[in-house]
Computed example of a mutant assay.
Amino acid sequence: MFSPAPASPCGSVSTSSSPRTAAASAPEIADWVTWYSGLPAFVDPDPERAYWTVVGGPILVANAKLGAAAYVDDRAIHHSGDWTDTLATVRRAVGLDCIGTPVRA
């Protein structure tokens, strides 16, 4: 079982279902995300959405992969059950671990 996620910077869950199947299963996926993460989740009402930028939650469940600085999935940043480690990896991947660090010109 995965540990509950801390308040996320912003997050979404993309389903790989067809639009018709996703419409039927999306509420169940949102309930599952809420149950296992401890964060509120809801089904995306906007089929034209390109990004999800709400900071601190809730989690968006969409049937399309939205634009992002980094993805946590089986082919990108791996989540092994520890959200502290996963989010630290995301921060390194997008350069947020270097904020305030002088950069040589």
Rank of each mutant, 00 (worst) to 15 (best):
G56M: 08
G56F: 06
G56K: 10
G56A: 07
G57F: 07
G57T: 08
G57V: 13
G57Q: 09
G57H: 08
P58F: 06
P58Q: 09
P58V: 05
I59H: 01
I59D: 03
I59F: 06
I59S: 03
L60Y: 01
L60T: 05
V61F: 02
V61K: 02
V61L: 00
V61P: 03
A62H: 14
A62D: 15
A62L: 04
A62G: 03
N63M: 01
N63L: 00
A64S: 07
A64E: 07
A64R: 13
A64W: 07
K65Q: 04
K65P: 00
K65D: 01
K65W: 01
K65A: 03
K65H: 00
L66P: 07
L66V: 09
L66H: 13
L66A: 11
L66T: 07
L66R: 14
G67V: 07
G67I: 11
G67Q: 15
A68S: 13
A69Y: 12
A70C: 07
A70V: 13
Y71D: 00
Y71S: 01
V72R: 03
V72E: 01
V72D: 02
D73E: 12
D73A: 08
D74H: 10
R75V: 14
R75Q: 11
R75C: 04
R75G: 10
R75N: 10
A76Q: 10
A76H: 14
A76S: 14
A76P: 01
I77Y: 13
I77F: 11
I77V: 15
I77P: 00
I77M: 11
H78A: 14
H79R: 04
S80L: 15
S80D: 15
S80F: 14
S80H: 15
S80Q: 15
S80V: 10
S80T: 13
G81I: 13
G81Q: 08
D82P: 02
D82H: 09
D82A: 09
D82E: 13
W83P: 15
W83C: 10
W83M: 13
W83I: 12
T84E: 11
D85M: 12
D85I: 12
D85N: 12
D85W: 07
T86A: 14
